[in-house]
Computed example of a mutant assay.
Amino acid sequence: MTNPNSAENLDGRKWSESNWEEDYLNTKQRLSQFQIKLLKEGPSSFSGSLYLGVIKRQWLKMRGLYTPEPEPPNCQSSFSEWNNNAKQLEQNNE
């Protein structure tokens, strides 16, 4: 069974999610100097780390590995629902 987080580039070199920065640098996509510095040296600020996360998401989409997070369940209720449940429990206890 093959690891879904690793494969081969078109030029035959191996890549995996552990060296995604190098793989992203070798794409044909045009990168700005800031993006290149960020991928080579890492982030130096909070906003840089957020932007690096955006770049990684682009890489995951490019490789077909991106899976969006599922919607959180709706756990919202109103006071009237709670009050009705409390009344029912009270009636059941009597």
Score class of each variant (00 low, 15 high):
residue 34 F to V: 15
residue 48 G to H: 10
residue 70 P to T: 09
residue 55 I to Q: 02
residue 34 F to M: 10
residue 71 E to D: 14
residue 58 Q to R: 15
residue 69 E to N: 11
residue 44 S to C: 04
residue 50 L to T: 13
residue 75 C to E: 06
residue 85 N to W: 05
residue 49 S to A: 14
residue 35 Q to G: 02
residue 79 F to G: 05
residue 74 N to E: 10
residue 43 P to T: 10
residue 46 F to I: 14
residue 50 L to R: 15
residue 46 F to G: 03
residue 66 Y to V: 05
residue 82 W to I: 12
residue 64 G to F: 06
residue 74 N to P: 00
residue 48 G to F: 05
residue 46 F to Y: 14
residue 36 I to H: 01
residue 81 E to N: 03
residue 32 S to W: 00
residue 77 S to A: 06
residue 53 G to H: 06
residue 32 S to L: 05
residue 83 N to K: 14
residue 65 L to D: 03
residue 34 F to W: 07
residue 44 S to E: 15
residue 92 N to L: 13
residue 47 S to C: 04
residue 32 S to F: 00
residue 68 P to F: 04
residue 73 P to G: 09
residue 45 S to D: 09
residue 61 K to A: 05
residue 59 W to D: 01
residue 40 K to Y: 01
residue 92 N to R: 06
residue 89 L to E: 10
residue 44 S to G: 14
residue 78 S to E: 11
residue 91 Q to A: 11
residue 55 I to L: 15
residue 56 K to V: 02
residue 52 L to I: 05
residue 67 T to I: 12
residue 74 N to A: 06
residue 87 K to Y: 03
residue 49 S to M: 14
residue 58 Q to I: 03
residue 41 E to F: 07
residue 40 K to Q: 08
residue 44 S to L: 06
residue 38 L to H: 04
residue 56 K to G: 01
residue 88 Q to K: 10
residue 36 I to Y: 00
residue 42 G to A: 06
residue 85 N to Q: 11
residue 77 S to V: 11
residue 67 T to P: 00
residue 67 T to Q: 12
residue 40 K to R: 11
residue 64 G to T: 07
residue 66 Y to L: 06
residue 66 Y to D: 13
residue 75 C to Q: 10
residue 88 Q to G: 00
residue 52 L to W: 04
residue 33 Q to C: 00
residue 79 F to T: 11
residue 80 S to Q: 15
